[in-house]
Computed example of a mutant assay.
Amino acid sequence: MEDRFAGIREFVATVDGGSLTAAANLLGVTGSAVGKSISRLEARLGVQLLHRTTRRMDLTTEGEAYLVSCRRVLEELAQTESFLSTGHQHPIGRLRVDLPTTFGRRHVIPTLLALCTRHEKLDMSVTLRDRAVDMVGEGIDLAVRIGALDAYPDLVARRLGEQTLVICASPDYLARRGTPLTHADLYRHDCLVGWRPGNRPMWLLKNAQGQTEPHEVPMRHEFFDGDALESACLAGCGLAQLPTWLAGDALRRGALVEVLSDITGGAMPIHVVWQKTWHLQPKVRVTVDELVRMAADSPEAFNRGRM
């Protein structure tokens, strides 16, 4: 009977070690044995996983995709074996996390770092991106998402809180340019927006029926990074529509002033999302629990008073 797992450890060890020799030393076999195992694996799959020359070894496109699945299988196996042998589920292994850029930097990464300090066998690979990713295809174990979620049968989500948007400006800017009172007043002001490829500058505003929808605004400056957008607003460069988790502290200090509160909108849920599996790995479970606790302990950042 064909062993579908044959060659997987050799393949992963070779990629991690960078050579057949390194993989052989790690696995306690010969380099030729490793090479034969990978060749048999490629023959069974019907694709080439590695480009091998006398000087280097590189993953093929198929190899990169297969490596993601192989790592996940080996990590889940290690987690299950640890549970069976100890009777306890301790978070071990590498957790791949994807976060919104500014929100993740400000409100999530400190919690992840503290979690890793408490669990010495838990390792993190964290990416910061303001776009949706294919969690399964890219091997992401856990993500934090702001906004409505599409229904994916292979993903599980838990709500952490809510993001709301406010339009604000510095007192200095308002003293120079006046306070806008209506939607039409925006066209006499400098508007600061977050950069999005291929999109027109939009803010979420309420229409005459009280429904929130995107409205184009006259853009003066645009910024890819949320921290930079807030800094420009604080410097008196114009009006900005900012989430309360970003502008809240400045609003409380009076460094920023909210305007047009009757027409601004844009309440969006904040979720932690992870892949659905038959056995929830301890590293995922512990991290989800910690993020839920973090959200409960940070009601201002997660706007939990409105939930």
Score class of each variant (00 low, 15 high):
Thr86Trp: 04
Leu128His: 00
Arg96Gln: 07
Gln163Trp: 03
Pro171Ile: 00
Val108Thr: 11
Ala151Ser: 04
His189Cys: 09
Leu115Met: 04
Met124Ala: 12
Asp98Phe: 10
Ile167Cys: 03
Thr101Arg: 15
Val193Leu: 02
Arg106Met: 14
His183Ala: 12
Gly87Ser: 15
Arg129Glu: 08
Cys191Asp: 00
Glu162Phe: 15
Pro153Met: 00
Arg158Ser: 04
Ala114Glu: 05
Thr86Lys: 09
Leu192His: 01
Ala151Gln: 13
Gln163Cys: 06
Leu186Cys: 06
Pro180Cys: 01
Arg159Tyr: 05
Pro100Gly: 12
Met124Gly: 02
Pro171Thr: 00
Pro153Phe: 00
Val126Pro: 10
Arg158Trp: 11
Gly104Met: 15
Gln163His: 12
Asp190Cys: 06
Asp172Gly: 04
Thr179Arg: 05
Thr127Cys: 12
Gly104Val: 06
Pro110Ser: 11
Ala184Val: 15
Leu142Asp: 00
Asp172Asn: 14
Arg176Asp: 01
Leu112Lys: 00
Ile167Met: 05
Thr111Lys: 14
Pro110Lys: 11
Gln89Phe: 11
Ile92Arg: 15
Val108Glu: 00
Gly87Val: 07
Cys191Phe: 02
Glu81Trp: 08
Leu149Ser: 11
Leu181Asp: 08
Thr182Gln: 10
Gly178Leu: 01
His88Glu: 05
Val133Gly: 07
Asp154Glu: 09
Phe83Trp: 14
Tyr173Thr: 07
Arg118Pro: 06
Asp141Ala: 09
His189Ser: 03
Ile109Leu: 13
Cys168Glu: 01
Thr111Phe: 09
Ala148Asn: 07
Gly87His: 14
Ser125Ile: 09
Leu160Trp: 02
Ala184Phe: 03
Ala157Asn: 06
Ile109Met: 11
Glu120Cys: 06
Asp123Pro: 06
Leu155Ser: 02
Gly137Glu: 04
Ala175Lys: 15
Leu149Ile: 04
Leu174Gly: 09
Met124Ser: 01
Leu174Asp: 00
Ala157Met: 10
Asp154Trp: 08
Arg159Lys: 04
Ala114Ile: 05
Arg145Glu: 04
Asp150Val: 03
Leu155Tyr: 12
Arg177Trp: 03
His189Thr: 01
Asp98Asn: 15
Val156Glu: 05
Leu128Val: 09
Arg105Lys: 15
Arg145Trp: 08
Val156Cys: 02
Tyr152Gln: 14
Arg96His: 12
Gly139Asp: 14
Arg131His: 14
Asp134Gln: 11
Leu181Ser: 12
Gly137Met: 03
Thr117Cys: 08
Arg188Pro: 11
Arg158Gly: 01
Asp154Pro: 04
Glu162Arg: 10
His88Lys: 13
Arg105Ala: 08
Thr86Cys: 09
Ala175Ile: 07
His119Val: 08
Ile92Glu: 11
Arg177Gln: 15
Ile140Ser: 01
Thr101Pro: 02
Gly87Lys: 13
Asp134Ile: 13
Gly87Met: 06
Thr86Val: 09
Gly147Leu: 01
His107Gln: 06
Thr86His: 06
Glu120Met: 07
Thr164Pro: 03
Lys121Arg: 14
Gly87Trp: 07
Arg106Tyr: 13
Cys168Pro: 02
Ala151Leu: 02
Ala151Pro: 05
Arg94Gln: 15
Thr101Ile: 10
Pro110Val: 10
Asp154Ser: 06
